[in-house]
Nucleic acid binder design. Structure first.
Lengths: 103, 103
DNA sequence: TGATGATATAGATGTTCATCAATATGTTTA
DNA sequence: TAAACATATTGATGAACATCTATATCATCA
């Protein structure tokens, strides 16, 4: 999967905030949570949680799934993997793996 | 190599800014540059370049090497690799590799 | 239908931060 | 030593943003 520059930038920004990283990590560990559940883990207001989840969803690192009045979120592993790959590529960390061994 | 939480957070913040990512990528591509060289690639003032390089150095993703009046910078691959690994760990992206294939 | 509950939005506030101009510090060379 | 150059620091400014309270929207249930 290929990330557009715009997407890469947005994901970088989404991952810049510690609170958002904590929420994302919690989602990665638990698999799926609704908004209230996420909020229960952290000492921030409900609107703040909602805001962070929206940022993560806009960056496509999580996906939103509405079920009645609830709203479940789960991580998008494909996008996250693509992000990490692109990050490695830009930082030259995969040169050894990708290059056909430059003798 | 193991990253302390504080280091991980600082690196995340260092990578959050597009200009800093561009500088880091340029360093990764060229291997080693002094401050002026870096500045020549981008349309920002000298103090801004100096500031960004300092941020990157404080996060240990680049290393500073003073030679006379010049100051060379190069990426620290060990730290960057450790950062990416820790990021993958937190996001649960290495589960497939690490786990003995569920079932 | 009205009450309760879940989530989203609006608006405000304080903080962080990217950037710049000006200046300081340190180094080389004429 | 004086001038020229490389880099760092200081202080200011405007923008981005994390967070909150208050309120709106939407769904469920009695």
């Amino acid at each position: 999967m290929k990330l557009a520059t715009e997407d890469f930038d947005r994901i970088s920004k989404a991952l810049a905030d510690p609170q958002r990283r904590a929420i994302l990590q919690k989602l990665a560990m638990t698999g799926k949570l609704n908004c209230s559940d996420v909020g229960a883990f952290f000492d921030v207001s409900q609107p703040t949680v909602s805001h962070h989840l929206k940022e993560l969803a806009t960056a496509h690192v999580v996906e939103k799934e509405k079920q009645g009045q609830f709203c479940f979120y789960h991580v998008n592993n494909e996008v996250l993997s693509a992000y990490v790959s692109e990050l490695q590529r830009r930082l030259g960390l995969n040169a050894v793996l990708a290059a056909p061994h430059a003798r």
